[in-house]
């Protein structure tokens, strides 16, 4: 049985889709069988970030409404053969996502894949609550910025009350992924410190993804950042996050702290 992960945040634009694609690809690059599911009905973008936008045949709503089989809707990645995408519908209303339908789809995916990654829409409406509903693990994507931290706190509350795990009295495993971290600004004291965010949200840290041009470049060419440039700083941070997700205890490095002059010029070896 595979694990179901929700990538969520409350706030929009913090990096949920980027992180879903990067973590999904990184897990698949390690040989695991992964499906990334877009829950943002009406405003899908995971297909674009993963470079599969021209190949969408059927979507999540088609599958829920019985118009297509799950196997017909899954799109296999052209670069990593164990990576799949289940796109959201671009046109239908999000009311077409039914609780029973989502439960059936996630249940089926769980039996076929090692990891089912649910890319949540922003907000706390139906799409977001359904994306988190069947999760075993939640990855809360947060920027070191006040409104993002506040919204993450709200989402953590929902994870602890509105999910199947919570309703069964079980504990939801939650991880913080700090994204768009700018070491230069943090050094100047203009950005919330990692410890500040951790203290406020009090969930364990999965990784720190530095703000980087590589993320934009990867989205331009339609490739998860871990595939676009495996040695870029954000890719290395996502690879490390995946190792922690799989249970390895790996110390979290704060971007910009460890690298000296030569490190900056030649980059670091992949972990």
């Amino acid at each position: 049985m595979g694990k179901v992960i929700v990538v969520t945040s409350g706030k929009g634009g913090v990096g949920k889709t980027t992180s879903s694609a990067a973590l999904g690809a990184a897990l698949a690059q390690n040989g695991d069988k992964v499906v990334v599911v877009d829950f943002d009905v009406g405003l899908r973008n995971l297909d674009l970030i993963m470079g599969a936008e021209r190949r969408v045949v059927y979507d999540l709503v088609n599958v829920i409404q019985g118009e297509a089989k799950l196997t017909q809707a899954l799109i296999r990645d052209k670069r990593v053969e164990t990576l799949y995408l289940l796109p959201a519908s671009q046109t239908r209303d999000k009311d077409n996502l039914t609780t029973e339908g989502v439960e059936k789809v996630i249940g089926a995916l769980r039996t076929h894949f090692d990891w089912v990654i649910c890319d949540s829409p922003a907000g706390i409406e139906r799409g977001a609550t359904l994306a988190m509903r069947h999760a075993d693990i939640a990855i809360v994507v947060t920027n070191p910025e006040v409104s993002s931290v506040r919204d993450s706190d709200r989402i953590i509350g929902l994870l602890d009350s509105k999910t199947v795990k919570a309703e069964n009295g079980e504990r939801m495993e939650k991880h913080l992924l700090l994204t768009r971290y700018d070491p230069a600004r943090a050094e100047r004291g203009d950005m919330l410190k990692v410890d500040d965010v951790l203290e406020i949200l009090s969930i364990p840290l999965l990784g720190i993804i530095p703000e980087s041009m590589d993320v934009l470049r990867a989205s331009n060419i339609g490739s998860p950042v871990t595939l676009a440039d495996e040695r870029s700083a954000p890719a290395l941070a996502y690879f490390d996050a995946v190792r922690r997700l799989k249970g390895e205890s790996l110390p979290v490095t704060i971007p910009g702290e460890k690298r000296g002059f030569f490190g900056k010029i030649f980059g670091r070896k992949a972990a």
Binding site: L48, G51, E53, R54, Q90, L216, R217, S219, N220, I221, G222, D229, R231, S232, K264, I265, F266, G267
Partner: peptide, 27 residues
């Protein structure tokens, strides 16, 4: 940043532009 990556990178914006044009034309 790696030197090789710094000097031999191709621009990514043209790819973004082309992908968006095709996608939006269809949508």
């Amino acid at each position: 940043m790696n030197l090789r990556r710094l000097f031999f990178r191709t621009q990514s914006a043209p790819a973004a532009r082309e992908r968006l044009q095709v996608l939006l034309a269809h949508e």
